[in-house]
Simulated assay, not measured.
Amino acid sequence: MLELPGVDKSAIDVKATDRSLVISAERRSGRESLAAEGVSEGQTLPETKPDPAPLLSEFRYGTWSRSFRFPVAIERDQLEATYRDGLLTVTAPKANKVSTVTVKVAG
């Protein structure tokens, strides 16, 4: 479970390999979010009031990434991620099958 307050769900990326999980996200400031939507500074959307700029913000803005390595393989096809109320929950079940290959020795 990761706390991601103020992060838009579309800005979260979850990737997995056999034994690792990489989560990356981007938190945009209010002005950056509007710019990404094509609204220039000073311009307001119809029927909305412009939000005043905060005097102090405790949030850090920008991109970040975290990676986790598991001691055993995970089942990538059953990987689930949900984001609600600023909390990202990722469920990564262990793989039940062990892939062992037997090789005949020639000679």
Score class of each variant (00 low, 15 high):
residue 9 K to E: 13
residue 9 K to V: 15
residue 11 A to L: 12
residue 12 I to C: 02
residue 12 I to S: 01
residue 14 V to I: 13
residue 15 K to P: 07
residue 16 A to T: 15
residue 16 A to L: 06
residue 18 D to Y: 02
residue 18 D to F: 02
residue 19 R to H: 04
residue 20 S to Y: 04
residue 20 S to T: 15
residue 20 S to E: 07
residue 21 L to N: 02
residue 21 L to F: 02
residue 22 V to K: 02
residue 22 V to D: 09
residue 23 I to V: 14
residue 23 I to H: 00
residue 24 S to E: 00
residue 25 A to Q: 00
residue 27 R to H: 02
residue 28 R to C: 05
residue 28 R to Y: 14
residue 29 S to Q: 05
residue 30 G to Y: 11
residue 30 G to F: 12
residue 30 G to V: 15
residue 31 R to I: 14
residue 33 S to R: 12
residue 34 L to S: 11
residue 34 L to Y: 06
residue 34 L to R: 13
residue 35 A to H: 04
residue 35 A to S: 05
residue 36 A to Y: 05
residue 38 G to N: 01
residue 39 V to S: 02
residue 41 E to C: 03
residue 41 E to M: 04
residue 42 G to R: 13
residue 45 L to Y: 09
residue 46 P to R: 02
residue 47 E to K: 06
residue 48 T to Q: 03
residue 48 T to D: 00
residue 49 K to D: 09
residue 49 K to E: 12
residue 51 D to S: 10
residue 52 P to T: 15
residue 52 P to A: 13
residue 54 P to V: 12
residue 56 L to Y: 08
residue 56 L to Q: 09
residue 58 E to I: 15
residue 58 E to T: 15
residue 58 E to A: 12
residue 59 F to V: 09
residue 59 F to D: 10
residue 59 F to Q: 07
residue 60 R to L: 10
residue 62 G to N: 01
residue 62 G to D: 02
residue 64 W to K: 02
residue 64 W to D: 07
residue 66 R to P: 00
residue 67 S to D: 10
residue 67 S to Q: 10
residue 68 F to Y: 07
residue 70 F to L: 11
residue 70 F to K: 05
residue 70 F to Q: 05
residue 70 F to R: 06
residue 71 P to I: 13
residue 72 V to D: 04
residue 73 A to H: 08
residue 74 I to Y: 00
residue 75 E to G: 08
residue 76 R to Q: 09
residue 77 D to H: 11
residue 78 Q to A: 15
residue 80 E to D: 06
residue 80 E to V: 14
residue 80 E to G: 07
residue 81 A to N: 03
residue 81 A to K: 01
residue 82 T to R: 06
residue 82 T to S: 09
residue 83 Y to H: 10
